[in-house]
Design a protein around this nucleic acid. Structure first.
Lengths: 193, 193
DNA sequence: CCCGTTAGTGAAACGTGTTTCAATACCGCC
DNA sequence: GGCGGTATTGAAACACGTTTCACTAACGGG
């Protein structure tokens, strides 16, 4: 991404951190980033597009931190629960930003669906990594059963984060829900490996 | 709900059916319902509020139809899968309306969270009904384990519908995902009852 | 160095969600 | 029937996402 687009995204992240979705006023983003409104719209089709770009940037950094130290634990359940705990805390650390990105991701805009799918696949890869206890790349050949488990858990996480973003439940409830879901889904036979 | 509010919601549903979220222009809703814009805003705090009311109305009618003939099947898995198939088809029958309601439900507005939670609890009750093979009221005393299963499946369904509403996947993929998730979660020992 | 093309700018305009307000209609009560 | 209070109306105004456009700056090839 060119420097200009990067600066726009950074500005959007700053504003979102401060005041959430509504605080990301595109006139302000453009002004703060030092570009004209038209330039912003040349790079990003919509506010949601911009916030998905922010989500991607944040995901990349979060992913890096998580991959650096994969959750330890002797069973798949412990590792998967650990992953979701770390990931949830990481996301909820900046609640306004998170809410803004989640809202953009849940907007249901078909133009953005592929990008949101990319995010989901990255989460799935991280879940599979935790399942197996060793890193797995996005797009690598993944066992069908593992992928099915990861896919379901990722959906639960997403829905749970939407509920969190509406203040229907707290951060700990999300973590708890993921622990429960993981316990329900993971076959015990998988505990060792 | 008074007749006036009801008429506003009905009008919103009509417009949403025809053209989705954006087609529900509140000026048009007010005009078509024969009330002033201010009157609409006295009853509904926002566009999302109005669409959640539409969701509630639609849910009530869908719920009635589903309760009328609970999915048959000798195992919990069959019944639960059957429920989600019927429910998904019922919702996807009017895709524009469904997308509009889903978008409102996913907006993450704390003002509406309780109402969205109400919807989720109704779905949970229906899932538990399918699990047990007999009707369960909303708010009834429900076994903790059953509720945990229903809660997880309901979250998967919601997230899957969000993906559908973004045209990331088709209606059949949602049904398939629910079948898979149910198979993952339901303990085999529960098959009989 | 000039030229054509592309990116960027500034400002205005449009659409739609939302708010506001003065004027009016309605309705129960004395 | 008059009165007070509340609901409704009509219209305007505001905020912000989005589009448009005429103008200018930058830049790479001849």
């Amino acid at each position: 991404m060119e420097e200009r687009a990067q600066r726009i995204v950074d500005t959007a992240i700053e504003l979102a951190e401060r005041g959430g979705f509504e605080a990301v006023r595109l006139r302000d983003v453009a002004a703060d980033a030092g570009v004209a409104l038209g330039t912003l719209y040349r790079r990003f089709r919509s506010k949601e597009d911009l916030l998905i770009a922010a989500l991607e940037a944040e995901t990349a950094s979060l992913e890096e931190r998580i991959r650096a130290r994969l959750p330890r634990g002797s069973t798949a359940l412990e590792r998967v629960s650990g992953f979701f705990e770390v990931a949830t805390r990481g996301i909820c650390r900046r609640p306004n930003l998170a809410r803004a990105c989640i809202r953009a991701a849940a907007s249901g805009d078909p133009e953005l669906a592929q990008r949101v799918a990319g995010f989901q696949h990255r989460v799935e890869a991280l879940v599979v990594s935790a399942l197996r206890g060793r890193p797995v790349r996005v797009g690598a050949d993944i066992d069908e059963a593992d992928l099915a488990i990861a896919s379901t858990l990722q959906l639960v996480w997403f829905a749970s984060l939407v509920a969190w973003s509406g203040e229907l439940q707290g951060r700990e409830a999300v973590i708890d829900q993921m622990r429960k879901a993981a316990a329900q889904i993971l076959p015990d036979s998988r505990s060792g490996h």
